[in-house]
């Protein structure tokens, strides 16, 4: 009884709230690096997911399939709530004295300027829109893979990770798994050409890797609790050690995700565990408080 492609899940946003006021900066206790590797999401996603909302809202009028349009609408609402939830966590990082303003300004510039409308109009604007849908489809493959990972990360529980943060990440991960096909389906509807899809991955994949690496370095360097400690400097072997211990996603997972995407017959529905997402949403404290959960 595994939900598959023939179960078209009705996508709806959930009205979740999180309270990070009591969160430690090493919310995986004693593991500042692993905590900050995941904290990068709080700096990337508020702007990134708002950009998804913007691009998909602009793309909706091009959609000529009512069922896909319904999926895209559900996707937009879920992404909008994700952005706000990560914004709450980002605000907490700032309150905790970690100055991430420079990094966040750079992220804002990337999403609003480089990946904004670029002053294009008419047919050129429309094609740039389709290109950005392709980029989002590539990035959404990673978010689905990350969602899958966080839903199956018992080592974080064993390490005593903060329950509120884990719930936020797993609720988010479950919704990413739940809506993992939407961006791909939208790209396939609007264009669908293989080389263009791969081109988007060749741009999105390395850019994401660089932003993630830089973000981790910034968080560790600026964390006042790490002042004067060797953990202030991020070392590759420390990351690999955390990955081996199951506290952060490992490099192999990302490499495999890219290889999967290269398959000309790739479809997200064939990867990922919808059952795990549904099961988590049925126990998530935030989703339970929000009501209307399935």
């Amino acid at each position: 009884m595994t939900a598959t492609d023939d179960d078209r899940i009705a996508l709806q946003a959930r009205d979740v709230r999180f309270d990070f006021s009591g969160l430690r900066t090493d919310w995986i206790p004693g593991e500042p690096l692993a905590s900050h590797v995941i904290d990068v999401l709080h700096m990337l996603l508020p702007e990134g997911e708002r950009w998804f909302v913007e691009v998909f809202s602009q793309a909706l009028p091009l959609v000529r399939d009512a069922a896909l349009a319904e999926d895209v609408r559900g996707f937009i609402g879920q992404e909008a709530v994700h952005a706000e939830s990560h914004q709450g966590a980002q605000d907490h990082l700032i309150d905790a004295g970690i100055d991430v303003s420079g990094y966040v300004e750079q992220i804002e510039w990337i999403f609003s300027d480089l990946l904004g409308e670029r002053g294009l109009t008419g047919a050129e604007a429309r094609e740039w829109l389709v290109e950005r849908v392709g980029l989002i489809a590539a990035v959404e493959h990673f978010t689905a893979v990350l969602g899958e990972w966080i839903l199956h990360s018992p080592d974080l529980d064993a390490a005593g990770a903060d329950a509120e943060m884990l719930d936020m990440l797993r609720w988010h991960g479950a919704e990413e798994v739940e809506h993992r096909s939407v961006a791909h389906d939208l790209y396939m509807h609007l264009d669908g050409r293989y080389l263009r899809r791969i081109r988007a991955m060749l741009i999105g994949g390395p850019a994401l890797a660089k932003l993630w690496t830089d973000g981790t370095a910034v968080l560790c360097a600026r964390d006042p609790r790490l002042r004067g400690t060797p953990q202030r400097r991020v070392r590759l072997r420390d990351y690999l050690r955390a990955a081996r211990r199951g506290l952060v996603p490992g490099p192999g997972m990302f490499a495999k995700a890219v290889l999967t995407y290269l398959n000309p017959r790739f479809h997200p529905a064939r990867y990922g565990d919808t059952d795990a997402a549904i099961a988590y949403l049925a126990v998530s404290p935030a989703a339970r408080r929000a009501g209307g959960t399935a």
Partner: peptide
């Protein structure tokens, strides 16, 4: 570098558009 890459991507997008078939009704 990212500014250059996205500029190239935007140009390629416009070129790709010449042969893109618009979405048909489903």
């Amino acid at each position: 570098a990212l500014a250059t890459i996205t500029t190239v991507a935007a140009r390629l997008a416009v070129r790709s558009g010449h042969r893109r078939r618009p979405a048909g009704p489903v």
